[in-house]
Design a protein around this nucleic acid. Structure first.
Lengths: 355, 355
DNA sequence: CTGAAAGCGCTTACAG
DNA sequence: CTGAAAGCGCTTACAG
């Protein structure tokens, strides 16, 4: 493997000049440049990233923004761990990561965080774009400042993002449809449980529902599908809605929750001792986890939350420091999690990405 | 983040002495050593791997051994990709990887490969231990030469392995039992299809069957379970055995294949146009993949083949260069793959581990 | 037992 | 436009 020094000697120039050519920096005469470039090509020169990073002292700053991982919605603790893990890993390359958080039901808190990020003037941003219009405006500002950004969990149809990492919401809803279908008896009715609040701030929810419906539409459905609305997933609301439903003689036998709030349904089923109601939904955070282990939750689709955070930062890092242009999107795998395999997934995050 | 220089200054010694303490090299007085160690602990010192690797010129050699990824059994192309990917990644740290292969049905070819590895005298070995007794003898030789090793896919109950990466065969068989159970009608009979040859060389197969049976035993089974034996998974053999089975009036309605040969059953079902037979098995290689997409294969449990190869090399690398002692085992997640999520997994290996 | 110095391969002011 | 030199943080002979 040739080094810069080898090339410099052969071209009869200094290593500094070779370095200028490699990085396409100005200040080299066309003639010299060409001579060096030829040698570079000839030997298929690859610079030593270790040495390069070590010598390159410019510090990079990355800002990240996701909802606060509260107990309310523990999904975000996954991406948060991923963000932290990646941050720790790239710290030794001189990259400093600033993490910002917001309340996903509070537009104001989102706006405040965005403002802080702009004030920081980071070299790149990784964020989950809630609140559509505000997010689009933010993207415009990032563009104006030439700040690259990676979206995680929720996509925006803007061509300017560096990459998007997340699930295909429609397909994951469709998959839930399939799983619900095979665990419920023919002709029994099932329900989709949603909260107004949730659908408003989180675009994916609606798309998941469409996917779910679509499964039954395209697979000669014989199961009536109801929609049950709650104001929010507060226990009271859920209890009221489900108590009403289950007081009917021909009540539903399966419930689909297109969010991580699945456990609120499981709470109800357990306290009412309803054994034969099937449940399908999203995410494997602690509260859902317990119910998956018990079997109260039949199937949960995992979104690979850790990876979303981890990959987001990693992709930006590689773009900034290693000039690697990522793919425009990375679709997270749709893991089907159930009682019998749930514990095998704990290991996944234990295999922590390192070096 | 403190550097060696910082520590050296504070301890009033040279950087060389600090380096000696960090690496526990001889030639430091107990008193000095203690003083330096305290500072190291105090600041939670982590040495800069980049600088360390750059300065450290010793080259490492790693040998890997897996079955040849033939079209016959495409499972191994997954780990093979993982091995290659990891090898490429650690090459820049001066680690050279030698890959060896063998025919998994030919003990002699296995022995030949082992011999070559011993002759290479690598600093570490990553391998899939087929042929139990031969493998144990090999492990003894590695121990005698102080060569650490990582097992992938198949475990050996030896306390001397650095780590094992693979699935819990019993649990994955159990999971197959569950999936088979929910997609077949009550009281219908199902079958386990196995080949003598396979069970002999691959310990996991038998354990998967036990897990599968165990599901039905512990969940008030009403489904008779037959065993169908074939000499090998050659198309002829499979056709003969299944033709016989399906000529019966009350034939089975589900088939479990405890290996990646699931597609041979799908071949049969497709050519005989048998629509309502459910199939469950292992691995998502190309041939199974096609049938999963069509729905002929209902569920396949994925073993994370890429990760097995990748992690195996990575773990050994980190042990050798970074002094990281891995966990004694890393259990691969048990992904449930079906028509509706199969394509989301292609992405997983696209998110190639880098830097 | 300990330190001073050279070197790993690359980058970056600085001087000319 | 170009080169000489210092430096990134760590490791390693070498000298004492």
């Amino acid at each position: 493997m040739k080094t810069i020094k080898d090339i410099a000697e052969e071209a009869k120039v200094s290593t500094g000049t070779v370095d200028r050519v490699i990085h396409n920096r100005p200040g080299v005469s066309p003639k010299t440049k060409e001579r060096i470039q030829k040698l570079l090509d000839k030997y298929d020169f690859e610079r030593n990233i270790l040495a390069s990073t070590l010598a390159f002292k410019k510090k990079y700053t990355i800002a990240t923004l996701i909802p606060t991982p509260a107990s309310k919605n523990q999904f975000w603790s996954g991406p948060n761990k991923g963000l932290k893990s990646a941050a720790k890993e790239i710290q030794k390359y001189g990259v400093i990561t600033h993490r910002y958080y917001f309340d996903q039901y509070d537009l104001k808190s989102y706006e405040r965080a965005l403002e802080q990020i702009l004030k920081l003037k980071p070299n790149g941003v990784v964020f989950a774009p809630f609140f559509y219009n505000t997010s689009l405006a933010f993207v415009e500002k990032l563009k104006a400042n030439d700040i690259p950004f990676v979206l995680i969990n929720i996509d925006l149809e803007t061509g300017d993002k560096l990459s998007y990492i997340g699930q295909d919401s429609f397909k994951s809803g469709y998959l839930c449809g399939k799983m619900m279908n095979i665990i419920t008896a023919p002709k029994e009715s099932i329900a989709i449980l949603t909260s107004k609040k949730n659908v408003d701030s989180h675009l994916a929810i609606e798309t998941r529902i469409k996917g779910f419906m679509n499964f039954f539409e395209t697979n000669k459905n014989e199961k009536p599908i109801h929609k049950i609305f709650v104001e929010s997933f507060a226990p009271k609301e859920v209890y009221r809605a489900l108590t009403e439903e289950f007081s009917k003689p021909d009540h539903i036998t399966g419930i689909f929750v297109p969010s991580s709030a699945l456990f609120t349904v499981a709470d109800f089923l357990q306290s009412e001792n309803l054994q034969n109601i099937r449940t399908v939904g999203f995410d494997v955070h602690q509260k859902n986890l317990d119910y998956i282990r018990k079997g109260t939750i039949d199937f949960a689709i995992d979104q690979h939350p850790f990876e979303q955070g981890y990959m987001g930062v990693k992709i930006l890092f590689e773009y900034l420091l290693l000039n690697k242009t990522p793919k425009p999107e990375y679709r997270s795998p749709m893991n089907i999690v159930t009682k019998e395999n749930v514990d095998s997934f704990n290991v996944a995050s234990a295999i922590e990405y390192s070096v």
